[in-house]
């Protein structure tokens, strides 16, 4: 059962991620990216991280992508449609990325130390994440809120017309 779920998610994620890279139009790339992000949420749910799966759907596939789509729709059609790829760069960089990826695969499969570890039933629940987040990681949480404030002010500062 897990195999069916995993391989379906794998196929959808890889195809839609490739579509983000290869699509001619920015709008199609953005829509493919939404599918990829939803599939990543699916993977999180399979890896016993239900809270992160929900946050991924709400924050990533919801908020961030809505912002991105708004900006994509602000531009003229001919500006968002570009010559798709640079043929002179595509060959070199594909080979480079493929070599690095093959190295990662070889090192993953040559190591047989990975086994599925049993996890407690409430692993990744909101309660357990919250207790870690607000005790051990209290200072980073506050810093993240400052970062968000800076981002809001900075975005308004940049976008305002002078």
């Amino acid at each position: 059962m897990e195999q069916i779920f995993f391989y379906t998610a794998f196929a959808i994620a890889v195809i839609s991620a490739a579509s983000v890279v290869l699509q001619n139009k920015v709008m199609y790339s953005a829509l493919s990216l939404i599918i990829t992000l939803l599939t990543v949420a699916w993977i999180y749910a399979m890896l016993s991280a239900p809270f992160l799966a929900i946050v991924q759907v709400i924050l990533y596939a919801g908020a961030i992508m809505v912002l991105l789509l708004f900006v994509v729709m602000m531009f003229r059609y001919d500006e968002t449609e570009h010559k798709r790829l640079r043929p002179d760069l595509l060959g070199v960089f594909s080979v480079l990325v493929a070599v690095i990826f093959a190295g990662v695969l070889v090192s993953l499969f040559s190591c047989s130390c990975f086994e599925n570890a049993p996890v407690p039933a409430d692993f990744g629940s909101i309660k357990s994440i919250g207790s870690v987040l607000y005790t051990q990681y209290l200072v980073p949480v506050e810093l993240a809120s400052v970062l968000l404030l800076v981002a809001v002010v900075g975005a308004v500062m940049l976008a305002v017309k002078r």
Binding site: H82, L89, S94, V97
Partner: peptide, 19 residues
């Protein structure tokens, strides 16, 4: 690793800033 590699590849070969 596959998703990361596709992201790197796209970052290197595309020219549109939003992409």
């Amino acid at each position: 690793a596959t998703l990361f590699s596709l992201g790197v590849l796209g970052f290197l070969v595309r020219s549109n800033i939003i992409v």
